[in-house]
Computed example of a mutant assay.
Amino acid sequence: MQYPKSLLAIACGLLLSPAFAADEEAPAPAAAPAKIAIGASTEALLDLQRSGLAAGQLQPVQGEVASRNYQRYLDSFKKPTTVGQIDQPATAAAVGTSR
């Protein structure tokens, strides 16, 4: 169904008007998260993770993926490193993780 452009403009104008905006409540400020108490079983699991005793087998990267990763590593030396890159810890956004 096609609506005339003037009708759409009027509808958008009404929705964006202060009368409609006044009906909405302002969001409440976010409270600080409560401190989480970690139990003995959680501490044991974290200790196991830190120790690496239950780690799985290493999975080597092979073929095209390995080749591209190595080339990206070599290319990283073509650009100069700035002082800010050395002093700042790496973040997920800076490293370029994709999930």
Rank of each mutant, 00 (worst) to 15 (best):
A34Y: 08
D47V: 10
V61E: 12
P60V: 00
L14V: 12
D87W: 00
T91A: 01
S6G: 08
L46D: 02
S41H: 01
I10D: 13
S98N: 03
I38A: 10
T42D: 15
M1F: 12
A19F: 02
Q2V: 07
S6A: 13
I86C: 05
Y70H: 08
I86P: 01
F20Y: 02
L8D: 09
I36Y: 01
T81W: 04
L16K: 02
A11Y: 07
T91I: 06
V95I: 14
G63F: 02
L16T: 12
L74E: 13
L7T: 07
D75Q: 04
P27G: 04
G13L: 09
K5T: 09
Q49I: 11
G13M: 05
K78S: 14
L16P: 01
Q57P: 09
P29S: 14
E43L: 06
S6F: 14
Q71S: 13
R68N: 09
S67W: 11
A66Y: 11
A28V: 03
N69Q: 12
A32S: 07
A11I: 15
S98K: 05
A92M: 08
V83Q: 11
F20W: 03
Q59L: 11
A31Q: 04
I10P: 01
P89F: 06
A22L: 06
S98G: 03
Q2H: 12
Y73Q: 10
Y70G: 06
K35W: 15
A37I: 10
S76K: 05
E43Q: 10
G84D: 02
A37Y: 12
Q88M: 08
T91Y: 02
G96L: 10
A26E: 09
P4G: 01
T97D: 13
I38R: 06
N69K: 03
D87N: 01
Q85P: 01
A34V: 15
G84V: 00
A32L: 07
E24N: 01
T81F: 03
I86L: 07
T91N: 04
Q71N: 12
L48M: 12
F77V: 00
A34K: 10
Y70I: 11
G56M: 06
F20L: 09
P18E: 03
Q62D: 08
A34D: 12
Q88P: 04
K79Y: 05
E24S: 05
L58A: 14
G84L: 00
K35L: 15
V83K: 08
T97M: 10
A44M: 13
A30R: 11
R99V: 03
G63R: 08
K79T: 07
P80N: 00
G56K: 03
I10G: 07
D87P: 00
A21G: 05
